[in-house]
């Protein structure tokens, strides 16, 4: 597993805003093929900043984010060929149907060979019922939209997938299905970086778990190391400990 070079890699990644607000402080992490990395942390811990840096939505102050060997802020257009993104709240074009949205976003992702059947198959795979495939997105629930989002990521067929709190606000059943899908994708060899608040699910499916607080990666443990540990108390420990430290 660790023999090949990592697909997603952050090296001394730092993002400082004006007035010395440090959103991300010297982050180092790597995600290899067939690996799920979960980032835990409170609001404002720097998880979304990490995602934004991997997508070059913002420029790093120092350090670099690398996708499939490409430094994102140096060659953003090239880097984005290797990464798919599912946001916390997937938003698609309300005027388009699910299939039309898929068509647009896969074309934008550089895949023009898909057919209508492919779209429908993927939508079925992510658990969207057939009746919904040709309905306009404006009437979709959040769960349905998240499914479309993951379908788009699947169709883009990239070595890396970034997920920004993909399961927040989903009902347990949908969350469960989501985890199953992620596991399948991992087994296909994707490198998956996911930020989440869901400690239990993180422990369940992750190969590595990182905990962030105030822009720092304060803990990183593999699934092996976590075995038998109570992740929740660890989490609370790190959060509290850090707070005492700063206080």
């Amino acid at each position: 597993m660790q023999t090949t070079s990592p697909v997603l890699e952050a090296i001394n990644l730092t993002k400082t805003y004006d007035y010395h607000v440090t959103a991300l402080d010297n982050l180092n992490l790597s995600v290899g093929r067939g690996e799920i990395y979960s980032l835990l942390g409170g609001n404002g811990a720097g998880k979304t900043t990490t995602m934004n840096l991997f997508l070059n939505f913002i420029e790093p102050s120092s350090g670099k984010a690398i996708v499939n060997g490409v430094v994102t802020h140096e060659e953003p257009i090239k880097a984005k060929q290797y990464v798919a993104f599912v946001s916390e709240n997937v938003q698609l074009y309300g005027q388009f149907t699910a299939v039309q949205n898929l068509d647009f976003f896969t074309r934008i992702g550089g895949n023009t060979h898909y057919t209508q059947r492919d779209y429908e198959q993927v939508l079925l795979r992510v658990g969207l019922q057939k009746e919904a495939h040709h309905r306009k997105l404006s009437g979709f629930s959040k769960g349905m939209r998240q499914k479309c989002g993951i379908a788009i990521a699947i169709l883009k067929n990239t070595p890396a997938i970034l997920l920004d709190e993909p399961t927040s606000g989903l009902d347990p059943k949908a969350g469960n299905e989501f985890s199953r899908l992620l596991a399948e994708l991992r087994d296909e060899g994707k490198a998956i970086l996911m930020s989440t608040h869901d400690i239990f699910r993180a422990k369940e499916i992750s190969d590595t778990v990182g905990i962030m607080n105030q822009g720092k990666l304060v803990m990183q443990k593999s699934a092996e190391e976590l075995k038998g540990e109570n992740l929740e108390s660890l989490y609370l420990h790190f959060m509290a400990g850090y707070m005492e430290e700063t206080a």
């Binding site: 997508l55 939505f57 953003p76 257009i77 090239k78 880097a79 984005k80 060929q81 990464v83 798919a84 993104f85 946001s87 709240n89 997937v90 938003q91 698609l92 074009y93 309300g94 976003f105 934008i108 992702g109 550089g110 989002g149 788009i152 883009k156 970034l162």
Partner: peptide, 14 residues
């Protein structure tokens, strides 16, 4: 505001 912009630019779109 809709959120499609970030999804769009997660692809290699200049």
């Amino acid at each position: 505001e809709q959120g499609t912009l970030s999804l769009l630019f997660s692809n290699s779109v200049p």
